[in-house]
Every structure is written in C-alpha cells, then in structure tokens.
C-alpha cells in the first residue's frame, strides 16, 4: 500500500504542476479532458434517464403488488395513525416466532419499512402472549390489545363462491377446521343442494364480529388460488346508515312493538 501511495502522490504533484501553469482552479480542459467531459456532461443526463426508467419500473412493480393483499400485524392502529406512529424498526418482525411479519420494501404496495404479512404466504398464528405487540416501542401496535381474539387484522371473505368446494357440494370445510376461532368466526350453514336435489351444502360463513383476520383460512384453502381471502377491514366491511333501525331488533330492545297493533280492516270480497 505504501508504494501505491507514493505513486499516486507523484501523480498528484504532476497534476498540481499542470494546474499551477494552467490556471487557478484546475480547469478540466487541461488534463483528462475526454473522461471528465464525458462523465460530467453526459453523466447528469444518464442519471436522469436511469431515474426515469427506475421510476417506471417501480410503478409497474407496485401495481403488481396489488395481487397479494397486505395485512397489518395484530393491534395495528388505524392505517393513517399507524403510519404516523410506526418507527419502521422491525422489532415486531424479530419478535414474531413464525416469520409471519415482513418489512415492506420499495414497491410492496405499503409504506417502506412498515410491517405487514400476506395471509396466503404465512398467516398469523395468533400467539396468546402477542409478542409482536409487546415488542413494539411506539404503540403503533396498540399495547392495550391483551386478548389476541380481539385482534382485527383484516376480515375473511369467501370471495369466490363459484370455485369454493363447499358451494360445489363437497364436504371440504378446511377453512372452517383451521379457524382458530372455530364455530364463531367461521361456521357452517346447511343449505339444500339444488343441483343434485337430494343433498346438502355446508357453506362456510364468516362472522365479522369474531374474525381476527389471521389468515389461517386463506392459507388453508385447498384451491390453487384461495377462494376465501382476508382483506383489510375497511376494504370489505359495509356500514349501515346511522339512521337505519332494524325493526325486529328495536322490538327486542323495547320488549314490545314500537307501533301500536295493526289496524284490522274488514275483508271485502267481490260480490259481497
């Protein structure tokens, strides 16, 4: 290394000499003209071009990302608040014993560095002690979540009723069997099989009041592409108008009909 140093030292002295003769600032036309000019003149343009290409590619990549839905870890604050609180430190990712959680890379479709999981890839195993929430230093994963069955990471939706084996009349029931909140989050409802006319369908039905969005059903679905899928709740959950009242529920609450008995009009038939 010593000899290298000596050599380049000499080179530098010559360079200095040239610069002293030529001008104050070491103007570039005095030495190494072509290389520098090439780099400096076309360099900026090349960088800009490369940037444009890169942006395009990233855009394409991020639109590809929409094919797999990204879900937040248990206890995550509402998305906007989450993005204001999450430090992108990855401690939740490290705490997850099943490698469910990943940190988003550029083009994953979620804010870079924030944690997410893909149900079809590795679903949440719903640890009783919720280590990811415990590891979160910022409260972006809300520490008030103590009971993992209260987590709302997403909502399972039987998205494809045309290909779901249960709808085709088979006793698949895998999503029902793997659901950690079995009988509550997913239950089977019996319907007549109108195709055969003499069998029953056992249809998986998701109850949004109990589904945690863990994604075990989506992971378990035996189809090539899952028929049941977990989505972020705000994407799929409808909401009644706040002024809507369900008559039968109001009746239950009041213990009696809210309107007086119906009036009975005499029945008149033609010819009477």
């Amino acid at each position: 290394m010593g000899t290298d140093g000596e050599k380049s030292g000499e080179q530098q002295r010559t360079r200095k000499g040239v610069i002293k003769k030529g001008g104050e600032k070491g103007d570039s036309w005095l030495s190494g003209l072509t290389r520098r000019e090439l780099l400096q003149e076309s360099g900026g343009r090349m960088v800009k071009l490369a940037l444009a290409g890169l942006l395009l590619w990233l855009h394409v990549r991020s639109s590809e990302a929409k094919t797999s839905v990204t879900l937040r870890p248990p206890g995550a604050l509402p998305e906007k608040e989450f993005l204001g609180a999450c430090l992108r430190c990855g401690l939740c990712v490290r705490a997850c014993p099943y490698n469910t959680l990943e940190l988003a890379d550029v083009g994953n479709g979620v804010a870079t560095g924030t944690p997410f999981f893909r149900a079809r890839n590795i679903p949440c195993e719903m640890c009783q002690d919720i280590p990811c929430v415990k590891a979160c230093p910022s409260g972006a994963l809300n520490p008030s979540l103590q009971d993992i069955t209260k987590a709302r990471m997403g909502l399972a939706v039987l998205a494809d009723q045309e290909n779901c084996l249960a709808f085709l009349g088979m006793r698949c029931e895998v999503c029902f069997q793997v659901c950690p909140v079995m009988q509550k989050a997913i239950r089977l409802e019996m319907r007549p099989n109108t195709r055969s006319g003499s069998h029953a369908l056992f249809l998986p039905v998701v109850d949004s009041a109990h589904c945690t969005g863990c994604g075990k059903c989506e992971k378990g679905c035996v189809l090539t592409e899952a028929a049941i899928r977990v989505f972020p709740r705000e994407l799929v959950k409808g909401e009644l108008g706040s002024h809507y009242r369900l008559g039968w529920k109001e009746k239950e609450k009041a213990g009696a009909p809210l309107v007086p008995e119906l009036m009975h009009f005499p029945v008149r038939r033609p010819g009477e």
Binding site: R61, R88, G90, E102, L103, D105, V106, T112, G113
Partner: peptide, 13 residues
C-alpha cells in the same frame, strides 16, 4: 434497514 432486513430495492435510492 435494507442491509439488515434484506430489502434490496430500497438500496436503489
């Protein structure tokens, strides 16, 4: 983060 978590695309920046 990219080096530690293996997120290589961010390294383009």
């Amino acid at each position: 983060r990219g080096v530690i978590f293996g997120l290589w695309l961010g390294l383009l920046v």
